[in-house]
């Protein structure tokens, strides 16, 4: 993708510096997601998926949790459409992300938008929201800088994980299962100045825990999010609260 050749007309900063600024934000995500990329590859190999297929999955789906669920189901004898549906269910939260940042990305060209939405992961969404909240321009170069920085290692590490499947150390001792919750908690905290933040966090948290215990994963994400968002629509709207660009 030739990012350098597509400058944004309205940006004060150069395309190159915007790309680097975005890349810098992608770095902690690369660190946080690297163990999962390797683990994904290793588990894929264990479930009889080839190195090429594991790499293809990371390159085309680019969504860690849904890929984990996918390979889990490949290991069992489950109808293909059900596997696709499960991937869709795990990724359903992106519908909300896309609805929200659509307001920020709408000044991009059609092609930039079509490419941009492919790279819409949890951290990418959070950083776009933070930037827009501060009233800063969200350029395609900045967005691509972050997206490509996360994407390329993700794909390569998945392939390496599948190739060197047995070299992965004990996942628990390197904190694997809890690194992403820590990262996401940091992101939750970064939105604490938003209107109704605390009530939304409390209601979403409680609803997702109840749903996790009753309905089960991955539905607790959609159910918990729906509860918090429903609350936000019912709380009184303060003046200027909705002035976000």
């Amino acid at each position: 993708m030739s990012v350098e050749a597509t400058p944004e007309r309205t940006t004060p900063a150069t395309t190159g510096s915007e790309f680097l600024a975005g890349a810098k934000l992608g770095f902690p995500v690369v660190v946080a997601s690297a163990p999962f990329a390797f683990l994904f590859g290793a588990l894929a190999a264990k479930n009889g998926i080839s190195v090429a297929e594991a790499t293809l999955m990371s390159a085309t789906i680019f969504g860690g949790a849904s890929q984990m669920v996918g390979i889990e189901l490949f290991g069992q004898k489950i109808a293909p459409w059900l596997v696709v549906l499960s991937i869709f269910a795990v990724n359903f939260r992106h519908v909300l992300y896309s609805a929200s940042i659509g307001r920020t990305l709408s000044h991009w060209t059609f092609l930039h938008q079509a490419i941009g939405y492919f790279f819409l992961t949890d951290p990418q969404f959070a950083e776009v929201e933070r930037k827009a909240e501060k009233g800063l321009p969200v350029t395609f170069a900045w967005y691509a800088g972050m997206g490509v920085t996360i994407y390329v290692p993700w794909v390569i590490e998945s392939g390496l994980g599948a190739y060197f499947g047995n070299l992965i150390p004990d996942p628990h001792s390197i904190g694997m299962d809890f690194l992403l919750p820590i990262y996401f908690f940091g992101l939750v905290m970064s939105f604490r100045t938003r209107a109704n933040w605390l009530p939304v966090v409390i209601v979403s948290g409680i609803a997702s825990i109840i749903a996790y215990k009753t309905v089960g994963s991955p539905w607790h994400v959609s159910i918990g999010a729906a509860a918090g968002i429903a609350l936000a629509t019912m709380l009184p709207i303060r003046n200027g609260q909705v002035s976000r660009p």
């Binding site: 992101l187 966090v201 979403s204 994963s217 994400v221 918990g224 429903a230 936000a232 709380l235």
Partner: peptide
């Protein structure tokens, strides 16, 4: 405005659900 308020709640609402069950 209420849809706007809903969209502005998306980050806190969704990201919280990725933490809460693990924290429990």
């Amino acid at each position: 405005p209420r849809v706007e308020a809903a969209l502005n709640a998306v980050p806190a609402a969704v990201l919280t659900t990725l933490v809460a069950p693990a924290a429990l």
